[in-house]
Design a protein around this nucleic acid. Sequence first.
DNA 1: TCATAGCTACTTTTT
DNA 2: GTAGCTATGA
Length: 758
Amino acid sequence: MEFSYLDELNEVQREAVVQTEGPVMIVAGPGSGKTRVLTYRIAHLIKAGIADPFNILALTFTNKAAASMRERIEKIAGIEARSLWMGTFHAVFARILRYEADKIGYPSNFTIYDTQDSRNVIKQIVEEQQLNDKLYKANFVHNKISSAKNSLISPHEYLNDPILMNEDASNGRAKLGMVYEMYNRKCFMSGAMDFDDLLVKTYELFDKHPETLYKYQHKFKYVLIDEYQDTNYTQYMIVRRLADAHQNICVVGDDAQSIYSFRGANIQNILNFEKDYPDLKVFKLEQNYRSTKVIVNAANEIIVNNKKQLPKTIWTENNGGDKIKVVKTPSDNEEGRFVADAINEQKMRHHFHNSDFAILYRTNAQSRAFEESLRRLNITYRVYGGISFYQRKEIKDFIAYLKLIVNPKDEEALRRIINYPARGIGQTSMEKLTVMAAEKNIPLWDAMEQVRFADVNMRAQSLIGDFRTMIKSFRVLMETQNAYDISLHVAKSTGILKELHNDKTPEGVSRYENLQELLTGIKEFTDSDVVEAEKTNQDKSLAAYLQDITLLTDADDDKADKDTVSLMTIHSAKGLEFPCVFVVGLEEELFPNAMSLESRDDLEEERRLFYVAITRAKDKLWLCYAATRFRFGNLFYCQPSRFIEEIKEENLHFIGHQSKKDKENFISNNTMEKRTNLIRHTSQPAAHRPAKDFTPDDTSNILSGMEIEHERFGFGKILQVEGGPDNRIALIFFKDLGQKKIMLKFARIRIVQGTVEL
DNA sequence: TCATAGCTACTTTTT
DNA sequence: GTAGCTATGA
């Protein structure tokens, strides 16, 4: 039978695979074989001769998802599946943009700025414009710009939007729109695009060049999108246009697993998809093949509490399984110990491997307690997330050289390395050059050429000349040498390698090893599959290498073959599964997080996150919470998460709860008493005593970012202000008490000038 | 020019 | 608790 792979699917799955024409939405619950359907669908398009691989566009959110699907498709459809256009939104669009760069005024070797680069550019602008860097924090400003880009709001539109402008002005950030505009200009001048630009510029390309849009519309006869619930407005607009000619668009997703709204993901994209395409065919994959009945039931019990969702109920033929264990521990450290002990015990009793376990938490900072207790028991583990290899300073520094060689206009790269290793080009000279570049409206690199016209001392002038000559000499090598040879030459001739080698501190040694590892990585890149590369005309240039690594993330470098316990945030666990899962830190204000308690939408997203967390488990699931926890160096008393209560008691088994009431309410009178005792006996700071002349200010002037003194709670900083004029509520971080919410109407607060010792 | 103490900020983050 | 950045002094 030619299409025998279809026999490996259940009925709905099979229908979803063979319905190749027209708009299709596949709503896929957790563990329902979503990836299988998507890969088989693509394989079917090819095998049944419906489409040529190069006429198929498949978009994913991670490189990993793209790679694993490609592999699975090749297994069914064979090697010709290689010419499939499959990759992340960013990688695929970057590829298109390199072809079409000249149409939008970019060089085809444009640099891609990662988040850190973007923030550095913003810092530079804030400094140049002499704006208050407390108000215009790079992080904050970047998030604002990013969300504007995710909604296709250009700087021009931003500056002309009275609502946005008013909002910024009332927050004391009237210049935000201007910073956005300058940021875009600086990136353009640097021949650089940030992550969001890869989407925005693609949209603009199609918008301004109908003939280009037409070309790609007819190239991509079949468009498929994975994790559709995570697309933002810009992605949605691009995809709609691309699929406009043939209308063969297939989206796969699960609204219940939409957990990236803070990154601009718009759940409405999936909820409204039916309105966009009235003749849409919808397939619901509701049978779960992953988890026990207990876990599937619990998942349903949780998610019904959300109002905004596509109606569906997941079910399973799997057995009932163990009850979900709800574990209360006295502290965060004991939570760590409990989990490590439990892993040990499970391994002894049921012959599990380390890799069968995952510890999932809300925030990265929670990993520490688990790392310590796992190390104590000699259980190997791997922490996912955090700073990736390519984010390390020594790696970024070195890569800045490579970036500058490929694209000398890249100002961010230039600034990073102009004086690294130290070569006597100091701040003063750079400031003067910056001013000149701004006046003449030319890239910094070009300004360096004309340094003789700037008021820079002779010594610095000649050093700058030397630097330019050196970079130019590296550029010459690009013509003849591969990425590895150039890199090695740069590492040696700049003295970076020697400098790191001479540093014998443990950190220095590790930095040296990291650079070595990077060089090895580059060698692997240039050497890999040389024959294959030549056949398929694969690019092994320095530029190609750089693009590869900027679009790579921590989750992609796969050392998964090791037998280790996985520690990660729930966000990074999406799409994965483990026989045994510990969801930890299930406490009010942590999970659901304090930042998400105010709006229904935010709380629903936290609930979806919890839904994602528990549906990672195949067999055994633990839900843990601690009665006390250190956060930001302060002791906090915790209430168990409301989400635990949403699961029916018949599916739960309580551990570490003293009384029946403790079980029912999760907090007994007994613990209430203990809590007050603890407060009394721990070293709580003495009550704040304000100065004698303490006079409260008018609280209506208070803005987030300000440092204040509260008559009773002491010094603190305003994190957030919200509510109308009559009921403004401030979230304040107090030096001695941690976070508190305060009604400003009644508060006696003094605004502190300058900085405060927090 | 470089090293270091001290100050500050910290939800999540597929790219 | 901790990492990263800034101001400071040698």
